[in-house]
Design a protein around this nucleic acid. Structure first.
Length: 262
DNA sequence: ATGGTGGTAAAACCA
């Protein structure tokens, strides 16, 4: 069974519900994982997505911050979440499909501006989150699993517009990149996007602050699709929907897509 | 070196 999946940091699901509808209409992923919904669950416009055919959804929300949702055209058999760092943040939701595949939708903390956990609590939180992700991967040995989301780290030199310039910028510092790599290795996760597109620059986020985001193209690959080792060979057709960043009143993130032949 | 934009929600916080 082919399963298409997209992940997208929507930066307010209420404000950008029309963009979600357009993505569903034009690209029709079986599964759409959203982050930064910035809404309590009962105020997310899930009913209007259900009317379009994405009749199954699981979400976790809080007002103003965080918030994640999984929209599905296929039944969700079970759902759950992990309370990373014990803060009660809506940064993770998981869904199990009838075929047995488990989808993990993650929103890793951005980490603030200063890449020093001694002086920046947000960066300390990010590193603690990554350490919990590593321990979870090690202990749970994920199988038949897909992990997606805004991981807020661009791991490779060609995942940013200027590797040298960004070595001290949160999202690309060696300490974060190493911590993400350790988490990936501990869970046996395969970076599906890079397995499919191994060469060259690849971005999923461009700052709102650029005068012309497309012309300057100062992007970073912050949004990822990972698969457990047993599913990696089933993944194909990876792409980043760069054009979506150019839609009217856009999110600062573009959707990342892949197909799994399960 | 700095400031640049955007969302939430009502001044400041977060990205």
């Amino acid at each position: 069974m082919p399963l298409t999946l997209a992940t997208w940091n929507i930066n307010s699901v209420r404000l950008r519900a029309p963009l979600v509808e357009r993505l569903l209409r034009e690209h029709a992923p079986d599964i759409l994982c959203l982050q930064e919904c910035k809404s309590p669950v009962d105020k997310m416009p899930l009913a209007q997505f259900a009317e379009m055919g994405w009749t199954h959804a699981v979400a976790r929300g809080q007002k103003g911050y965080n918030g994640v949702a999984i929209l599905s055209r296929h039944p969700i058999e079970d759902a759950g979440h992990i309370d990373w760092c014990g803060r009660g943040d809506a940064r993770h939701v998981a869904a199990r499909l009838a075929c047995g595949a488990v989808i993990h939708n993650l929103y890793i903390p951005a980490g603030g501006d200063v890449p020093d956990p001694e002086v920046n609590d947000k960066f300390a939180h990010k590193l603690a989150f990554l350490e919990e992700l590593r321990a979870w991967g090690r202990d749970s040995a994920p199988a038949r699993s897909i992990l997606v989301g805004d991981l807020n780290i661009a791991p490779r030199p060609d995942d940013v517009w200027d590797h040298r310039a960004l070595l001290k910028v949160v999202s690309h510092t060696p300490v974060e990149v190493d911590a993400l790599g350790a988490a990936q290795e501990a869970g046996g996760w395969v970076d599906v996007t890079r397995a499919d597109i191994p060469e060259g620059p690849l971005y999923s986020w461009w700052s709102y602050r650029a005068r012309d985001w497309a012309a300057s193209d100062r992007g970073r690959r912050l949004d990822h699709i990972w698969a457990s080792g047993d599913l990696a060979a089933a993944a194909c057709d990876s792409r980043i929907l760069r054009d979506v960043r150019g839609w009217a009143q856009p999110s600062d993130h573009a959707p990342v897509m892949a197909r799994f032949d399960l």
